[in-house]
Design a protein around this nucleic acid. Structure first.
Lengths: 107, 107
DNA sequence: TCCCTTTATTGCAATATTACGATAAACAGA
DNA sequence: TCTGTTTATCGTAATATTGCAATAAAGGGA
């Protein structure tokens, strides 16, 4: 009891929920929007920009990376994180399709 | 320690993450997709369609309702749940804008 | 009124998430 | 090599989420 029953759901439902779960925290939404608007993508800048301690930010970055929403590459002494277009495209397409199929038939 | 520090983030980041959190579970993704493709929207049908006990499904439905993703109305003996176009439109627009702004500049 | 059906709520155990201090790892420059 | 800078990991406490049995609530029909 207590754990999500992933084995009872389809791969598609598990994949979509995993992608959405990666963005289901204000810090991670803030990171994505920050990377979107800023030139730099240095990890330290992200840490400075968020109201959380460095280990906590590192943890959030790892979750975004694991979900494929961002990717990181070594840039000298620091790490450069940036957005993965493919993952964001997937989300855009998903909600685009979803919304186009909704017909307010009841309620 | 342990709780998300919502008061440290902007309303926008909190609102977006709350909307995404409502979909950050395979059962809730499955419910939304089920409502999208099916004629009926009776609560009992949703319960029958998911591999979870009735109280658990009821809990997931409440979370979707609280987030404004679905809405319910009394339909005789049962409750009819259906999708809220506005919430899905918000998500579609959000990722549409996000994806259009991404420029693969680094990494 | 008394059942029966349908959905919501309560209470609780199991598990996951969040946050952070301490510390490790990797590496550049003196 | 030693030192400082940057990022990741470990360990752990606080809190949240998930799932379900039991039960309540609401209403329809006999």
């Amino acid at each position: 009891m207590g754990a999500t029953k992933y084995d009872q759901f389809s791969d598609h439902h598990n994949e979509m929920s995993a992608l959405l779960k990666a963005l289901a925290h204000p810090a991670r939404v803030a990171i994505v929007e920050y990377l979107l608007k800023v030139e730099s993508c240095i990890c330290g800048d992200i840490v400075d920009h968020l109201p959380l301690a460095q280990p906590t930010v590192s943890q959030h970055l790892r979750e975004l990376k694991n979900a494929g929403i961002i990717q990181g590459s070594v840039e000298g002494t620091s790490i450069c994180y940036c957005l993965n277009e493919k993952a964001l495209g997937k989300l855009k397409n998903y909600f685009g399709k979803l919304e186009s199929k909704v017909k307010s038939k009841c309620c």
